[in-house]
């Protein structure tokens, strides 16, 4: 799965995108995040505040319980502050 990171989350993780192969048990966006958190403290810090986490799959906003697969592109970012 291709994952994109933006803003504060991108800075915590230290990259703007990466390719990850999802373990079998991973079915939702929340599962992906839980998996990423096992990869290091930078990920744990990025996702430390679940309330401040938003997601999009294939360029559409989705809730964290949305189902994903390896062929999807996931984007993770904090609440938007444009305008």
């Amino acid at each position: 799965m291709n994952i994109l990171y933006f803003a504060r989350i991108r800075e915590h993780i230290g990259k703007s995108s990466e390719e990850i192969t999802l373990p079998e048990r991973v079915t939702t966006v929340a599962d992906v995040i839980e998996h990423l958190e096992t990869l290091g403290d930078n990920y744990k810090n990025a996702f430390a505040e679940p309330d401040l986490l938003r997601a999009a799959v294939n360029d559409e906003y989705v809730p964290l319980d949305y189902n994903v697969s390896n062929t999807d592109e996931l984007a993770l970012f904090p609440p938007m502050t444009g305008g």
């Binding site: 504060r8 904090p78 938007m80 502050t81 444009g82």
Partner: peptide, 26 residues
């Protein structure tokens, strides 16, 4: 449009002051 744009348009602001940079909180 502005009220919706604030929460739904994918933009993020980062400010720089004399103390350094910080992301603006929603």
């Amino acid at each position: 449009i502005m009220d919706w744009l604030k929460t739904d348009a994918p933009f993020w602001k980062k400010e720089e002051t004399e103390d350094g940079t910080h992301w603006v909180d929603a």
